[in-house]
Amino acid sequence: MTEFTPVSAAIGGALIGLSAVMLMALNGRIAGISGLFSGAFFSEAGDRAWRGFFLIGLVAAPLIYTLSRKAQPAFEITSSLPVIIVAGLLVGFGTRLGSGCTSGHGVCGMSRLSVRSMAAVALFMASGAITVALAKLAVGG
């Protein structure tokens, strides 16, 4: 259970949007993390370095936050390790097969009214919600 935090959510979301706009304006690329991440390993050699730098920024950002706030971001995960492994495999394979994740489809694709992205977001939101509901039933929650 977490509290509803619309203001920090909107500020965080606006920063994500700013990052996406910046990457398009400067480098001409979509800020889709699953594609960016896989491309850091599996794209043509000349197209890898900038992806690596974006990912370094992504990892470094929470460290800067931690230094300035003197507290780490909250991270509560209750899933067991086998479930985490299955989840990771599904997220990695599924986002590649479906050509995107929450950022690439959810932010970049939907913002340009891509029908593919709208379909993908509807499907992964629905399957995510159904999974959570079924997991609650399974543990009797």
């Binding site: 299955v86 495999l89 599924g94 479906g98 929450t102 999974t131 997991a135």
Partner: peptide
Amino acid sequence: LAFGAVLFGIGWGLAGLCPGPAIAALS
């Protein structure tokens, strides 16, 4: 696209992590 999105959603719902947060949470 449809099959991939559904698989991703199941993984997302199992752990609560998608690719961006998963990478950002390493530290």
